[in-house]
Simulated scan of single mutants.
Amino acid sequence: MPETSTTRWTARASVPLLVGGNDIAAQGWTTASQTPNTLTYGADYVRLATSTSSGARTSEQLLIMRANALDATKPFTLRVTMQVESVNTHNQLDSGAAILGSFTPPGGQAVDRAQMIYLDSAAIGWADDTQSAAFAVTDGAYHVYELSVDAAKVATVSIDGVAKLTRNNFAANGTIAIGDQTNDANVDGAVRIKSVERLCP
């Protein structure tokens, strides 16, 4: 059978960075957060959830982050298998459900936030609003989100093996993060992360 884009991306070997259902701290992850928020576990996922109290001017933040997740001097691919249960529409440079291929605690520096991937209910995009793509993010299903950065620092974001976004001059620092990156009021989300992997070259 001829190789398709789907068979190609599912066949690549990977290094697990997070296995859902297991303690994240034991797997080398830490959190950047503002309380209250909830981090809970299911049989095969870790669930992150934030909300805004009625009348509050700020909301909660909850990111899980892993330092030294990748060698930023080399090409890399991150694969995140995740379900977005719910999410509010992002603000520029802020997102209630985000994937950051480069992160500086506690909320990300300007370059981290500009190239952050936001996930809205019906679209994904770069958080500096330079590019977006329609997608039914909150459809009740798990999806495979991949961020690939090549030797020329060109980044490509794919969902379930289909390319959706590209970006030049992606700058990584080796630390990655996933979750609610902002404390902006009413910019919240709830996600279930089944796995995070670094794909082998």
Rank of each mutant, 00 (worst) to 15 (best):
G125L: 08
E197Q: 10
A13F: 03
A97R: 04
I64V: 05
I124S: 06
A26H: 08
A26E: 09
N173T: 10
D160V: 08
N168L: 11
L18P: 01
A190S: 13
G28W: 09
E85I: 14
Y145R: 07
P106N: 14
A122I: 12
F135K: 01
Q109H: 13
T4A: 10
M65F: 09
I99P: 14
A155N: 01
K164T: 04
R12P: 00
T52C: 08
S195F: 01
A13E: 09
S54M: 07
S158K: 06
D150I: 02
V187T: 15
A136N: 14
T6V: 05
A97Y: 02
H90T: 05
V87A: 08
T138L: 06
Y118N: 02
D120H: 04
A13M: 06
D71H: 05
E197M: 01
F76K: 01
P2Y: 01
D128E: 14
Q92E: 13
A26Y: 02
M1D: 14
D139S: 13
T77W: 05
L70S: 04
A25N: 05
A67D: 12
A155M: 15
N88K: 14
S148L: 07
S158G: 03
L18R: 07
I178M: 11
I193T: 07
A11H: 08
A32F: 04
S102M: 07
I24N: 00
K194W: 07
F135L: 10
D44K: 04
I193C: 03
D128K: 03
G20W: 00
P106L: 14
A123Q: 09
S54C: 04
A25S: 03
V187D: 09
I178F: 11
T31S: 02
T156Q: 09
G20D: 01
R66E: 00
N88E: 13
V87P: 05
P75W: 12
K164A: 08
G55W: 06
P75Q: 11
F135W: 12
A11T: 09
R47A: 11
S14N: 04
R8D: 12
Q27M: 03
T175M: 13
S132M: 05
A11E: 12
I159C: 06
G20M: 02
A67S: 14
G21K: 07
Q34C: 12
S95C: 06
G20Q: 02
D150R: 01
Y118F: 15
P36E: 12
Q131V: 04
K74A: 15
W126V: 00
V191Q: 15
D129F: 05
D71E: 09
S33K: 08
N37P: 03
A11P: 09
T58N: 13
D112Q: 09
G21Q: 04
G96L: 11
L119M: 15
D94F: 11
M65G: 05
D180S: 15
V191K: 03
F170P: 01
H90Q: 12
A155C: 06
A114S: 15
L62W: 02
H143C: 05
D44Y: 04
V84L: 04
D160Y: 02
C200M: 11
G101N: 10
R198Q: 13
L48G: 00
M65W: 03
A11N: 11
A26S: 15
V149H: 05
A43M: 03
R113Q: 12
A133L: 07
L147P: 05
T77M: 10
D150C: 00
V196S: 06
R8I: 11
S86Q: 14
H143K: 00
V15K: 11
A13K: 10
